[in-house]
Design a protein around this nucleic acid. Structure first.
Lengths: 150, 150
DNA sequence: TGAATTTGTGGGAAAATGTGGATAATTGTG
DNA sequence: CACAATTATCCACATTTTCCCACAAATTCA
């Protein structure tokens, strides 16, 4: 299970060093083979290859003449790029994706269960502040949440 | 069951010494393996690993395209960091989390049943004063509370 | 009251990690 | 086909982090 927040910096070549504590897990799970793609919230998603493939299978089965389905396919599958950890545990983020998420120097890598999210550090902080301020307002809670006890 | 309030201080490296009276319980329950994450109220939550995993299982099952669910996942799972008690019964709080909760020198560790909360001491005192002043006003009570007898 | 054990605090050394540069390979172009 | 430019792999150094040990303080028991 991938969790936790890591503040990292891209090196001069646009590479991202994955923190050591995840490497064993990733090596065992997917031999360092990952897929990056984009998210609606202007961040990147980083999946271990097998997890991505499962999602991809679900996506291609969606009805072709549904607008939102089509949109999702174009965003997710359309930007998905395979990339491998190099000898030093780094991945090279494709320039178009780097640009999409406005990644400059400092980024945050956030574990989200089966995947990571990659945010520009400043963007992440802004977003998080909004979420905290918003509280539970601004959206009906799904029933699973109503009864959630932490 | 974790209870009680403890005023503690972080050492120069950001480590927090867990009071002795909890150590046996924690050792037996989770061999000192804990998870820290954040809370909407700008404090940290400290779970024994197995308890955290249960919550995490619930969280990852929530629908991906529900705003509030997504927010919760990002905050809770996104900040969750595993950390182990060292030989002296201390845990190292990750700098980003320390910063999140504005933990300086003096903090309070508060038992909350299945978890601890960690507050900056000053912030805690302010909050508590507000709660006391506010009383039960300012919010409809959920049905479980209406019928609660203390 | 004194001594012994337990607890809290801090520092230091070894190991692991992050960062950058240099060289080798590959691809595209003239 | 050769050359140039870009991309990938590798290696070395500096820094950070982690682990462990030693001392100081406090508490307990005789």
């Amino acid at each position: 299970m991938l969790r936790g927040l890591n503040e990292l910096s891209l090196d001069s070549k646009g590479r991202l060093a994955i923190p050591t504590r995840y490497r064993d897990t990733l090596d065992r799970h997917c031999e360092g083979r990952m897929v990056v793609t984009v998210d609606r919230d202007r961040c990147l998603l980083l999946y271990p290859l097998p997890d991505w493939e499962e999602i991809e299978r679900k996506l291609v089965k969606l009805p072709s003449y549904n607008e939102s389905a089509r949109r999702l396919q174009r965003l997710l599958i359309g930007h998905a790029t395979e990339c491998e950890l190099d000898g030093s545990g780094r991945i090279l983020l494709p320039p178009p994706l780097r640009e999409f998420a406005s990644l400059e120097k400092t980024v945050v890598l956030i574990g989200q269960g089966n995947k990571f999210e990659i945010w520009d550090a400043a963007a992440w902080n802004t977003q998080r502040a909004e979420w905290l301020a918003a509280g539970a307002v601004g959206g009906a809670l799904p029933p699973e949440l109503e009864s959630l006890s932490l």
